[in-house]
Amino acid sequence: MTDIIIHCAVALLFPPLLLGVIGKTKAAFAGRVGAPYLQPYYDLIKLFRKGSVFSETTTWVFRAGPVITLSATLIAALLIPLGRHAAVISFSGDLILFAYLFGLSRFFTTIAALDTGSSFEGMGAAREVTFSCLAEPTLFFSLITLARMSRSLTLSNILTHPTPAIWLASGASMLLLVGALFITLLAENSRIPFDDPNTHLELTMIHEVMVLDHSGPAFGIILYGAALKLFVLGAVFVNIALPIATGNPLIDWAIFILAMLVLAVTIGTVESVMARLRLVRIPQLLVGATILSAFALMLVLR
């Protein structure tokens, strides 16, 4: 019961801090002081108090988009195990639902973008759906590999299964998986090298350009949803990359939080030392990640 409460509290309250840490890391690399760690929370509070501007071309779809996207992401957050504890909702076959909830949220994010009739948002939507097509098989190759290792169809078993012993036994496969999943994590969350969340040119953006016309509370919902998605996919990554379980629930939670913060610093570092890829190169990297994950599956067949 305590674990369920902690799970919900961490999933609801923690995600914006990741954005704050990423921002701070990037500022440190650039030699600036940067915005405070809690800046994303202030932004959210401010946005929920702001008025909204709606384009005349928009319909109810524009308003429903962020709401449905956030709802689907919230459910995904309940399906994954955090900090070596079983998920709040867990059943056989939940990994497929997990993947498809992101499909649902993508559908609504992109049609909300198209609802504005802006060509920039059309571009963003087209890129989003195109790139995620290529990222999807990677996720499933990784899930099959992990399912085979843990002999289970339940996310809670699959993601808490990796242990130091497994890392030692099939390290190559795990390394490939971690690599492929990290690429997918960056692509799905529109981070550098796929997309620059801080860019100022609409022509080159992916996620940010889709939400150009959202304002006020709706934009707050979108920002929060994006942070939550980063948190959820980050947690999947951390579960596999950091196979440490002490057996003490509270220490496990602390390790998990710490690992998530390290992940945020890593993402910030990647964003500071890398440039954005040209748009035409992105599919190549995504297909590369798919092949890495296919290799991982092949290596566990022995």
């Binding site: 929920f48 108090r49 702001k50 008025g51 909204s52 501007v53 709606f54 384009s55 005349e56 071309t57 928009t58 308003r63 429903a64 962020p66 709401v67 956030l70 709802s71 504005t116 009739g117 802006s118 060509s119 920039f120 609409e202 150009l212 016309d213 006020g216 509370p217 709706a218 919902i221």
Partner: peptide
């Protein structure tokens, strides 16, 4: 979430405009 959002919208100022076109 939808109901909360719509209630919040009612309390806050709202404006109509054309779509952002750079």
């Amino acid at each position: 979430i939808g109901a909360a959002y719509l209630l919040r919208l009612r309390r806050l100022p709202r404006a109509q405009g054309s779509t952002w076109g750079c």
